[in-house]
Nucleic acid binder design. Structure first.
Lengths: 226, 226
DNA sequence: TTTTAATGTTACAGAAATATTACAAATTAA
DNA sequence: TTAATTTGTAATATTTCTGTAACATTAAAA
């Protein structure tokens, strides 16, 4: 069971696409095209997460949000809001009124999916897969622990994110730029060579003598997990 | 380069979502919200594939289709049509008028993506494939690995690119100049004879005893995969 | 056959990419 | 605050790759 998601969004085509994709991912999904009805159905449906459009014909997203936070049964329902490009003020209002995250339209499904997983991971950990494994390597996202051959390994924050990144797509070769984009916070400028150093640190931590090297260097291309 | 895709579809939200997702996948995408303009832009854009809505405000999908098939430059342009649920008759008409495949709304992006790859693989194979194979030779572009008869082979960066190049058009004979242009980074000046050396290195790596030579020398013309 | 042009082979020096180390600044914990 | 940890970079070491030149071999032409 992957959890239940409710969508309140007035653009039918968006609802269809998102709903279809989420169902393919194993979520149980229900939706409503307007705010007032949505609120009612929502209470019956008891979702684990709500996708909420910010611009609705009847009720505004902020009203729905407040309404939910006032309701003791829904108080802790995670909400991801869908905003149109440039509605920066709304984002701020949204975050103030208790929204957990936001996604700007147009968004790719992958982007939305990643946000949903991230939010669910915080609020409802056993709904989402939290363990990444590869061979005798295991990474627990909840407890932030890493094991090699059942022995716990201590990693610094950056090395943890780096390994987490590699584990989401083992074997695939990533360039330094790709690694930088994904593993480092946005708009941070670090030398591309810096990655070599972190790779070195990660290698040192996860390598066990007599066990094979897990990180492969692909000259002129990047690195991958092997 | 993954290829260029043009979209003619009047629902802006669908266009946005599909375009965004396709661009994330590495395609170059352009689009138009109506038929007449679309046809014009299409000719300028020169896509590898067209996504065509069947219900447009001005021109019908079938008209566009016929128009395209009549144009000698666009004759072989692969078309995937987007139909609403239950327009079965249209599908038949569509296939008769030269559509390559169709997708029924609402569709998941993955579904669409799969269709696109399938159609492109037929029409324009080297745009989409990540695995290149020829006889018992296999090159994986994602993992950057090469196998001969299921045995992994280690190649340097240049030899890898060289083999990748040959694999996109096996059997075809390439002159040294053509090889140089494509395999070497632009505005690099290397002796044409240098290629002989790399060919030699590649041969040494991919040849297995008792197996036939895979690279053929065509005296005074160049080399090819055989 | 001899000659000639094209390709094959080899070795090697410089270039390029990566690995390693050390350290100071920044961040976090105590 | 001090101490400990983490980070990014620069400097240096090491490894691997590249291009070329010199010489060898082969195939076609004369």
């Amino acid at each position: 069971m992957k959890g239940k998601i409710f969508i309140i969004e007035d653009e039918a085509s968006i609802v269809q696409l998102v709903q279809h994709n989420l169902e393919k991912e194993g979520f149980v999904v229900s939706s409503s095209l307007n705010g007032n009805e949505g609120l009612k159905e929502l209470k019956k449906f008891e979702p684990n997460l709500l996708l909420l459009d910010w611009m609705l014909p009847d009720l505004s997203g902020i009203d729905i949000c407040k309404n939910i936070r006032r309701d003791s049964n829904l108080k802790s329902l995670p909400i991801i809001m869908l905003t149109a490009k440039g509605e920066e003020e709304d984002k701020i209002k949204g975050l103030e009124s208790g929204v957990d995250d936001y996604v700007t339209k147009p968004f790719s499904f992958n982007e939305l999916h990643a946000r949903i997983k991230a939010v669910l991971r915080r609020s409802d950990p056993n709904i989402v897969a939290n363990d990444l494994t590869f061979e005798d390597l295991k990474l627990d996202r909840i407890e932030k622990r890493v094991f090699r051959a059942d022995k716990e390994i201590q990693l610094g924050p950056t090395e943890f994110r780096l390994l987490e990144f590699f584990l989401t797509n083992p074997k695939r070769v990533y360039s330094r730029d790709q690694i930088l984009e994904t593993v480092w916070p946005n708009n941070v400028n670090v030398e591309s060579r810096t990655i070599d150093v972190h790779i070195r640190r990660l290698r040192q931590s996860i390598n066990i003598k007599d066990k094979k090297e897990l990180i492969r260097t692909v000259r002129s291309s990047g690195y991958s997990l092997v």
